[in-house]
Design a protein around this nucleic acid. Structure first.
Lengths: 121, 121
DNA sequence: GTCAGAGATCGACAGACGTCGAAACACAGG
DNA sequence: CCTGTGTTTCGACGTCTGTCGATCTCTGAC
């Protein structure tokens, strides 16, 4: 019945803009710590390819089986997807046999504006 | 001049179009390799603070002496600034005794649009 | 129940990374 | 010249990270 564990993996409010634009003021240590996690998640070529594969896929979501052709082993793919999920960039959902990963547009937009606004200095 | 945008500064994006928006298609291994370098540069809290300090500083540039209060030793600051420079995010110039680091707005804008456009999927 | 396939987790390993102190380098001033 | 200050480079150290094969869990089909 209640086989659902209350795992605090992803807060729905995690989509909030973590930090002010980079040009507004120097980030505090705490802000930098949080923001760096997201950038670091995209700072690996394999993760970037996986992320791009999900984002560019139909409907902004993709089955693992559709995107695991990035030149590394299956456990490594799973490991990287987990990292992207922990960074709040992706969410996952099991539908039958397959697991689908979906992009979090709000987080993506927040990261983008962090940079875009700073470029308008 | 019937341009609706008041800031045509960022429009010539031909500066460093490393890669297509993340949602256009899955990145190739080579594209991902290049792009990951930039994201990885921002994937460290200390570098993020240094970068934010430069970007938010007067005129988008700052002397090392103005931004080296981030809780690590001075050689470490220099090391991180070098990394940001190698990633193409900052450029440096020596003026007399001091060395000034300046942001590269085009690269910053390119990274931002990489994410922002992908968020509009 | 049994089986097969899709993913996740585990354990281990090499290489990359952040950090520091010491030393070298560059420049201004005396 | 020499001295002091700002910045970079060097060497070394411990930690983090990406990678793999083996194994485990979950689901659907028989």
């Amino acid at each position: 019945m209640s086989n659902v564990k209350a795992l605090p993996l992803l807060e729905p409010a995690a989509a909030e803009p973590c930090c002010p634009p980079l040009n507004e003021r120097p980030l505090t240590a705490d802000e930098a710590e949080r923001t760096a996690v997201m950038f670091k998640a995209l700072g690996d070529p394999v993760r970037l390819r996986l992320f791009s594969a999900v984002v560019s896929h139909e409907g902004g979501e993709a089955c693992v089986c559709d995107i695991s052709d990035v030149g590394v082993s299956q456990p490594t793919v799973s490991h990287h997807l987990k990292k992207l999920k922990e960074a709040g960039l992706l969410s996952s959902e099991r539908r039958g046999t397959w697991v689908y990963y979906r992009v979090e547009p709000a987080v993506l937009a927040a990261m983008g504006q962090l940079l875009t606004k700073a470029a308008m200095a």
